[in-house]
């Protein structure tokens, strides 16, 4: 059973240590495993009591407990997310998954979130290299994890179980350039939906600022310097040549002007300039 931090501090470890010793005798690792299962970590005082009761020095208990990575001396989160960083998973980009978890949870590998919900760990190899990159959430193995699925995994875990949904094949990242100056509009240092964003400058109602669009085709996530009210028609400009990115046609859904950008692999994409409208035309 999982206990909150406050409960642990007030509890005495005598009974649980006695219980474990009765169950396992003098087998230290088994006792430590039971204590860890009970508290989600091994409290210092429990180890002191254990050493006293087994008649061995604290040094020996601590030496064994620190040897195994499975034992933790700091409280672990309710959910443990382990990313495999073994060779097979590494070449399939598991380091990006680790980074994505770090970004999403705001903690480095080996740390626990402040609300004690998630512990983020890495493992050297989980032994199932064929389905890599692998993420293990509370004992469930998730195969072929992609960075775009990290958010879903975390949300799913919070709700109960992490289920890796089949990825929508219609969602894929695109790269675009300005149709006037041919400069790339991509900004790799800023990620939206974990992909490099499309960076343009905009103006509406005498306001000027930057706008970052998700480069995932099918995603409508944006980041903007100013809040854009819904139904506002926005003018888009190239940040390099300052030419307006304006298309020839109008939106098939709301007949607002369309924004034109060239796709690097050939073709062009037009998106509706009205905030809130999802009208777009992809021509490859």
């Amino acid at each position: 059973m999982y206990l909150s931090k406050g409960q642990i501090e007030h509890e005495s470890y005598d009974s649980i240590v006695d219980e474990c010793i009765e169950k396992h005798g003098e087998f230290l690792i088994a006792i430590l495993q039971d204590i860890q299962k009970r508290y989600n970590y091994i409290p210092e005082d429990a180890m002191r009591k254990l050493a006293k009761k087994l008649g061995i020095t604290l040094r020996d208990v601590y030496g064994v407990a620190s040897f195994y990575k499975a034992f933790s001396f700091t409280p672990k989160g309710k959910h443990v997310v382990t990313t495999c960083t073994g060779t097979a998973c590494h070449v399939r980009g598991s380091s990006k998954i680790v980074d994505a978890f770090s970004n999403e949870l705001g903690i480095k590998p080996g740390e626990t979130t402040k609300d004690l919900m998630f512990t983020h760990e890495t493992a050297a190899c989980l032994g199932c290299c064929a389905i890599g990159p692998v993420v293990v959430v509370d004992g469930d193995y998730l195969p072929k994890v992609k960075t775009t699925a990290i958010r879903k995994i975390i949300d799913g875990t919070k709700r109960g179980a992490a289920i890796l949904e089949e990825e929508d094949q219609r969602i894929f990242p695109i790269q675009v350039v300005c149709p006037q100056c041919n400069h790339s509009l991509m900004k790799p240092e800023h990620l939206v939906d974990n992909y490099p964003c499309i960076h343009v400058t905009i103006s509406f109602k005498r306001k000027h600022g930057w706008l970052r669009l998700s480069s995932l085709y099918g995603s409508f996530n944006i980041e903007s310097e100013h809040d854009i009210p819904v139904d506002t028609e926005v003018n888009f400009f190239c940040p390099h040549c300052h030419a307006e990115l304006v298309g020839s046609s109008t939106c098939p859904e709301c007949s607002a002007p369309m924004i034109l950008m060239l796709v690097t692999n050939g073709g062009n994409i037009q998106i509706c300039s009205r905030r809130g409208c999802k009208g777009h035309i992809l021509d490859i």
């Binding site: 210092e44 040094r59 208990v61 601590y62 030496g63 620190s66 040897f67 990575k69 001396f73």
Partner: peptide, 16 residues
């Protein structure tokens, strides 16, 4: 004193 941790994190120390 005793050995603490393992591998490249090995060190000789007192508990905690």
């Amino acid at each position: 004193i005793g050995f603490v941790n393992r591998g490249n994190k090995l060190e000789i120390s007192t508990p905690f």
